[in-house]
Design a protein around this nucleic acid. Structure first.
Lengths: 233, 233
DNA sequence: CGATCCATTATTGTATACAACTTTGCGCCC
DNA sequence: GGGCGCAAAGTTGTATACAATAATGGATCG
């Protein structure tokens, strides 16, 4: 999924891509918790492929810094440190406002419609109480803006940052501050639709600041579950 | 080498890391030209490991966008497009000045000494006429600044950008405009040593603008050589 | 003489077998 | 009873064998 977003031309997908996609989505949706061990044999059985494919997939996830591979010990979903959490949102605050501005200048009617649908799906997911899915869609909203900005290099960085943001939110989100997402994304969409670059830039910036400050970056981690329980099989 | 720079703690290196390091260095030093095919059997023989290791290495390089893996056809050193060239230097201009500023605030005496040595080695390499090595060291200079800035996330992006910059320079450098590097890096070092963040930021920015404009982003690619010729064996 | 089709060859994709290491659990000794 | 050490089990690291796909070259036909 990730690769498809950035380079839509590559339709030549290997089996590893499927595994990566499923795992990325599962991690994004918080169906696999940070700290979970991703055993090769388990995954091989679940996905019905050999360990060769699984290893390639895990290495790909390691490159995105979604999992950490400890030599001779296995792959684990990373548990971003508080420091990394700050870094990730700092980096996003540095890059995304500019992208939002660019996106406002370039967004076509189709782009706006796509974003509109994203928001609707997000609301629907929330209505169903599926917070994981809503969060996933929320990330896709940001990725879509990066794509519209038409700067593949930075968009790639954003994808990596958003993936890690998902883990950070899983670990550090404080439930008190609820879904500010809703209004923020809607306001952004308006600015993009009306080609107001400056407004989009500022909205994106304050949106990210809001997100950053909605994290409780003092307390420490939370449990980890098993694999089959999360993936079903 | 790349991974070591970012996360010095990981001393647990597999054989693939060695292969990746050698290939990255060879590409940085322009001993392997853009477009070169990296056959798995060839590399396996050269490095004395099985194709398993080679495949993992090539996938790692693909993630850094140094090589492109075409399904059933093999891995090739990428030939960045003109558009990508612009993107890479735009992204660098966006990120590196800020890092330089941060680095100026944080650089210790040891850091400055290390940078000083980098510059000296760079000059020595140029004196020997080894442009490839000089360019490689020039890149390490930038990476070192990112490390000093102590922002691992952005530093990781910078590493990726510099790796791609090397390919871009291999393809699009116009020899007329010679080594402005020399003075730029020296001036930067001075600013860092004197903790002049603002000056470092501006110097870095103009340095990158210089680099960007020293590229001829109109004409098209250049030849490709064979593997054994470049790596010796 | 040139182009096309098919067989051959070479290279990559995947699975499996084996080796090395880490973890675990039992037994022994203090 | 607690801690240490060793053996067994399980997991990962690497190599190799086989399958599938693409590149190559020659023969045949137009």
């Amino acid at each position: 999924m990730i690769d498809k977003q950035i380079s839509p031309s590559k339709s030549q997908h290997s089996q590893a891509d499927t595994v990566v996609d499923e795992l990325v989505t599962a991690i994004h949706q918080h169906r696999i918790a940070p700290g979970t061990k991703l055993g090769e044999d388990d995954l091989a059985e679940i996905f019905g492929v050999s360990r060769t494919i699984i290893r390639a997939s895990l290495q790909a996830l390691a490159h995105q810094q979604l999992v950490e591979i400890k030599r001779n010990r296995g792959a684990f979903v990373v548990q971003p440190s508080i420091r990394e959490a700050h870094e990730v949102f700092e980096a996003r605050a540095l890059l995304e406002p500019g992208l939002a501005s660019r996106a406002a200048e370039r967004a076509t009617a189709e782009d706006i419609q796509l974003l509109q649908r994203h928001i609707e799906e997000e609301h629907a997911a929330l209505a169903e109480g599926d917070r994981g899915k809503a969060l996933h869609l929320s990330g896709l909203f940001h990725i879509e803006i990066a794509r519209i900005a038409n700067h593949a290099t930075i968009a790639g960085f954003i994808e990596a940052l958003i993936a890690r943001s998902s883990l950070i939110i899983a670990l550090y989100w404080r439930r008190e501050s609820a879904l500010c997402e809703k209004h923020a994304h809607h306001a952004l969409l308006d600015a993009l639709a009306n080609q107001q670059g400056q407004a989009a830039e500022e909205l994106m910036n304050s949106h990210l600041v809001d997100l950053h400050s909605a994290l409780d970056l003092r307390e420490r981690p939370k449990p980890a579950r098993t694999l089959k329980e999360a993936l079903g099989g």
